[in-house]
Structures are given as structure tokens and as C-alpha cells.
């Protein structure tokens, strides 16, 4: 018991290092680049997952149990359109970023 109490609760400590290094795992708001955005016709989607596999930013999740089965992280989607181009069902359309469906 005694020994356990002596153990520090966390082994992490901050050290000052000299020279160049990156240690903050962060993400730029690349969603702001978008000129067009993918618009998914959920009724056409067969949930094959090809859009997610092909997305360079890895921002697409295909959720088979949900009605809105394709989720996109809008903070990071650059609007490249690969998902729309590769969708075998043509269920994704690229629409101007500021347009309303």
C-alpha cells in the first residue's frame, strides 16, 4: 500500500528541449478551403464505403445503421470531390459551398 501511494499518479512530465521539434498534434481548419462540397443522396447510397476509403483527408465515415449514413467532418473536408467521382452509385454530387439544398 505504502509503495503505491509513493508512485506518482502520472509518469508524464514536461521537459524543456532545445532545437526544432513538433509535439502538438493539431489540425488546420482545411474545411475553409472548400469551394464545392459533397452532397450525399442517402437514398441512393449502398454503404459500400468506397468514398471513405478514397478520401485523402480521411473525413468520411459510413454508418450502416443510420439514415444519414455518410458523415463528413466539415471542419477538414477540402472539397476535392474524389468521393463524388468514385461513388459507384453516383450518390454524391459536388455543389457550390454556399448553396442551399
Amino acid at each position: 500500500m505504502q509503495r503505491q501511494q509513493e508512485k506518482p499518479t502520472s509518469k508524464l512530465r514536461r521537459f524543456r528541449l532545445y532545437g526544432p521539434c513538433s509535439h502538438v498534434f493539431d489540425a488546420s481548419h482545411t474545411g475553409s478551403w472548400r469551394v464545392e462540397r459533397p452532397d450525399v443522396a442517402f437514398d441512393k447510397c449502398v454503404k459500400c464505403g468506397i468514398c471513405a476509403t478514397c478520401c485523402p483527408a480521411n473525413v468520411i465515415t459510413v454508418d450502416k445503421g443510420s439514415a444519414e449514413c455518410v458523415r463528413i467532418m466539415w471542419d477538414y473536408c477540402k472539397g476535392c470531390g474524389i468521393c463524388a467521382n468514385e461513388c459507384p452509385q453516383k450518390a454524391i454530387a459536388m455543389i457550390p459551398e454556399r448553396s442551399v439544398k
Binding site: 488546420s28 474545411g31 485523402p56
Partner: peptide
């Protein structure tokens, strides 16, 4: 890999 990396859109 972070989701927001400033590679060009559509970068292979």
C-alpha cells in the same frame, strides 16, 4: 495522421 493537413485538395 491529422485530418487537417495543408496538402492540396485531392493529394495522392
Amino acid at each position: 495522421v491529422s485530418h487537417g493537413v495543408s496538402a492540396c485538395a485531392g493529394c495522392g
